[in-house]
Amino acid sequence: MAASSSLQLAAHRLPSPSSSAVRLPPDARLGIPATPSRRLALLHLGSAMHHEQLFRIKRSRLIRKVKGIEARAAGKTTRQASTTISKEEALEWVKKDQRRLLHVVYHVGDLDKTIKFYTECLGMKLLRKRDIPEERYTNAFLGYGPEDSHFVVELTYNYGVDKYDIGTAFGHFGIAVEDVTKTVDLIKAKGGKVIREPDHVKGAKTVIAFIEDPDGYKFKLLERGPTPEPLCQVMLHVGDLDRAINFYEKAFGMELLCKRDNPECKYTIAMMGYGPEDKNTVLELSYNYGVKKYDKGNAYAQIAIGTDDVYKTAEAIKLCGGKITREPGPLPGINTKITACLDPDGWKTVLVDNIDFAKELE
């Protein structure tokens, strides 16, 4: 089973508003493959009708029976989960859960060009690539190590869509490198776009630079020594920083690693994660003074987080003010259990069962 199943089945693959080349059906836009189970049920129904005299079952009763079986199979676990855990148990569960940032999904207009840039300029490795022609998209997973131990990017290319709107809400990705200046020189030599030359962070010794990839996603290069996780940051803008911190602590079990205010530039940031910044990927939440809402565009999709129990996790998310956009349970066609939600700022996150995800990687 491809390891991309759990995330890609949950990701929105929305074409650019200006493009008419792709018209995906609703399930395909969500990445959910068509399942024959419903059609097979109806075929069996037709067969049963040919033998009605033998079974003496009316058509209406058979339809109700088939629907009832399907409904019970789909909803049994979710109902049990929602009625067997209290508020206190749900919040306590978050503290004990084994969680890890797995990957981030976003859309690109030229997959081969982006892969070439990431591998040659940023030093990533192409881990896997798969094409799904019946749903008109291609995936590529890239990173600095295997998916079972590293945070990776999942690039999604939709057939015929060569441009997306990144919007103003997404900030940047962070890459830790040993020499920022050499990396910038390499990127320039390859024709890459540098939007901030190497320089020290104001009031600190860290050297940084900013570049853009072929689709316009910003990458911050941070000069650090050797680290087990070079893909070190995902920065998102939020409209209420304290509210966001509270949600990510309680709903996702993240730790507030640091909080820095810059009144001169009128912004405050908070680093959230599951371990120290120099060894783990962290989520950088950024608040610009007085800005409550941002345009999210249609380019960035979501982050995936591993969990030991998607049902308990979904209950905790609800209690903490998150909106569940996909009820917890196995994905159609595979056994991987997920749940998906929106945080108070509308950022999407998918929670993936740890054991199921490990099986996918096998």
Rank of each mutant, 00 (worst) to 15 (best):
H107S: 15
K95H: 05
Q53K: 15
S60K: 13
A90N: 11
G322L: 11
M254R: 02
I303M: 09
A299M: 09
S16Y: 10
I63W: 07
V108S: 02
K96D: 06
R59M: 10
K129D: 05
E135V: 00
G333W: 11
D112G: 15
L285S: 02
T114E: 08
K67F: 14
I187T: 06
S60V: 11
G171S: 13
P26F: 15
N280D: 09
V291C: 01
S20R: 05
Y118A: 05
R13T: 00
K259T: 08
H12G: 03
K193G: 02
E134S: 12
A11H: 03
V153I: 12
A11P: 11
D110I: 00
G123C: 11
G46P: 00
A251D: 01
C121T: 04
D112V: 00
L283Q: 00
E360F: 09
K266F: 03
P263A: 14
L9G: 04
T227G: 07
S47F: 13
G275K: 02
R99S: 03
S18G: 05
L283S: 06
V310S: 03
K87G: 12
L361S: 03
E229K: 02
R38N: 05
V207I: 15
L42M: 15
S19A: 15
P36L: 09
K163V: 07
T78Y: 13
T77F: 13
L127W: 00
S149I: 05
F151H: 07
C320W: 03
V153S: 00
S82P: 00
G174I: 10
C341D: 01
I166S: 00
A169G: 12
R29N: 07
S149C: 03
Y287L: 12
P330Y: 11
K163L: 11
K113Q: 15
I195G: 06
K193P: 05
P25A: 13
V152R: 07
L361D: 03
I85W: 05
H200D: 10
K296H: 14
Y157T: 00
S4L: 15
